[in-house]
Each structure stands twice: as C-alpha cells, then as structure tokens.
C-alpha cells in the first residue's frame, strides 16, 4: 500500500505538491489527472523516490521510501521522457537491471520482448518515441514491480500498442496484484484502465474517487422548454455544476443521480428532458471549472 502523509514538495517559492495525504490500495490502478503544472509529475517523482519531500513522507508497504533501496526495489518509474545511453539496447540494459531489481524475471522479459513488436538488440536512442516507450515498458514490466508509476505513458503509442499495454497492465494487476499510478492528460485511456482517479490542481488534491462512483455522480442533462420559466435561477435547489443555454434549451451538468434531481426538473414542466453520464473528460472540465480553472479563467 502506498501512503502519502502530508506530503509537500517546494521548488523555491513554488509549491508543486501541497500537504497531500492519500492512500492507494494494492492492486488498484490510479489515474492522476490535473491541469498543466498541477504537480502530477512531481508527485510521481516523489512516489518513486527521485525527489526528497520538503516535508511529509511517502510510505510503501509501511516503509519510508526515500533513499530506501528495499522499498524502491518494489517500484518502477517510467518518466515522460525516459533516459537511455547512446549505446543502450533492451538486452544490454536488461543485463544491468537484473542485478538491481530483486524481482527481475527472465521469463517475463523474454515474454515481453516477444509481445512488443521491437528489436531488443537495436539501439533504443534511434527508435521512435513510441518504440522507446515500449522499450521502457518491457524493462519495467520485467522487473515485476509491485508499484508501477507511469508518466504520460500513452504519448506516442499507436492505438494497437495502447490497447496491448492496457491489456497487459490489467492482466498484471489481476495476476500479481500490482499497483499502477498513471499521470496522463489522455482521459479517454484512463477511463478504460483506472479504477480510481485523483484530480490535482495547483499542488492540491481536488478530488479522489472511484471511477464508477464518479461516473454515476455526474449527469449531463438536456432540458428543453416550450417557454423558459421566468425565474432568475431556474435550477435552484439542484446541485448544478455547469449550465449552457441556447434559446429555450439548457445543457446542464448536475452532480447527483437521476433520483436526486429528476423530480425537481420535472416540476419545471420541460418539453423534453434527457440525462446521460459524463465522460471523464467532461467531469475533469467541470470539476476544474469549479476549482477556478476553466477556459474563461485561462483566456
């Protein structure tokens, strides 16, 4: 289990991660989403022991993580731009990882080298961005990490490999109880993969929720009136996140289930009403808007 205890990371005057406390259970896949500069990558570097926290602590299975080789041996971090030496190949890098990672599996390495469509003897530095990520993934998964931290891992991967990666991760999680933390702006991919989502903004954890709960917690409702009610606040009493009006038609984002808000909407005598769940991206936009980060505040 990963535990973050009042974790703070400051870069000079900037607080990248601010007093964050969080628990991540084993076997879960957690998506880290948030605005640019919200602290996702910094959090991953704190989780993987690259950075020393300014205050607070990261615990892995009850052990302090920072500068602790035993705890770090259970983790693997693939950053957004993984580093490889000029003459690195998958094979010669694997040779070096064997001694460093206690759970290194030769069978898994052979298996992943077969699964991913890249040459394990080719120089990684000459490969495309997507292939470099695949190389990093082969090495990462061969270490059989109990905790895998991925930063923008879907960048540069073609749809087939993306699909393959998601399948491998899900299998690994199911079989080995691996915990995965993925920071990404690709919410569509996270939606398929994650069972929990953490939303970050300006170093703070804005929201942390199961993805199923999240999906049911918000509804996108279209309400059409033959004549719009003559009231200053039509949706008073309903937990409305966002309203967009086009004539007599209202597109409303509501927090809650149909059981919560339908009676109140029906009481307004709409000509037409339909409700559907939000995509993760829509939830992200609406929550970020609530946190003061929307397109209007940026422009």
């Amino acid at each position: 289990m990963i535990e973050l205890n009042a974790l703070t990371k400051k870069f000079g005057k900037v607080t990248a991660v601010d007093n964050m406390s969080l628990s991540i259970k084993n076997g879960s896949v957690v998506g880290l989403v948030g605005s640019n500069g919200s602290g996702k990558s910094t959090l991953l570097r704190l989780l993987s022991g690259v950075y020393k926290p300014s205050s607070g602590e990261v615990y892995i299975d009850g052990q302090k993580l920072f500068d602790n080789p035993d705890a770090k041996g259970q983790c693997y971090f693939i950053p957004d731009f993984p580093f490889f030496y000029n003459n690195s190949t998958i094979n010669n890098t694997a040779f070096l990882y064997r001694k460093l990672y206690p759970n290194w599996s030769e069978d898994e390495f052979t298996r992943f080298c077969t699964i991913f469509p890249i040459d394990s003897n080719a120089r990684i530095i000459n490969m495309s961005k997507g292939m470099q990520r695949q190389a990093a993934l082969i090495l990462a998964l061969s270490t059989c990490p109990r905790y895998l931290f991925l930063d923008e891992i879907f960048d540069g991967l073609d749809p087939v490999v993306r699909h393959l990666l998601k399948k491998i991760l899900i299998t690994h999680v199911a079989e080995h109880n691996m915990t995965v933390v993925i920071a990404s702006h690709n919410l569509r991919e996270l939606e398929d993969l994650c069972d929990r989502v953490c939303l970050m903004h300006r170093g703070h954890l804005v929201m942390e929720r199961d993805i199923d709960t999240l999906r049911t917690a918000f509804r996108k409702v279209q309400v059409a009136f033959s004549q719009a009610p003559d009231k200053p606040n039509i949706f008073e009493g309903i937990n409305v996140i966002n309203v967009w009006q086009n004539g007599n038609v209202f597109n409303v984002t509501i927090k809650g289930t149909e059981e919560d808000f339908m009676p109140q909407l029906n009481a307004l005598n709409p000509a037409y009403i339909s409700a559907m769940p939000l995509t993760l991206e829509e939830i992200f936009i609406s929550e970020m808007g609530a946190a003061g980060y929307d397109i209007n505040s940026i422009t």
């Binding site: 690259v50 602790n68 971090f77 950053p79 206690p102």
Partner: peptide, 12 residues
C-alpha cells in the same frame, strides 16, 4: 532525464 533514471533505481 538522468536524474529520473538514477533517482528511481533501487540503490541508495
């Protein structure tokens, strides 16, 4: 990039 690599290795 090197810091990410070496910093995350299981070595003190």
């Amino acid at each position: 990039r090197k810091v990410d690599l070496y910093g995350s290795l299981p070595i003190s």
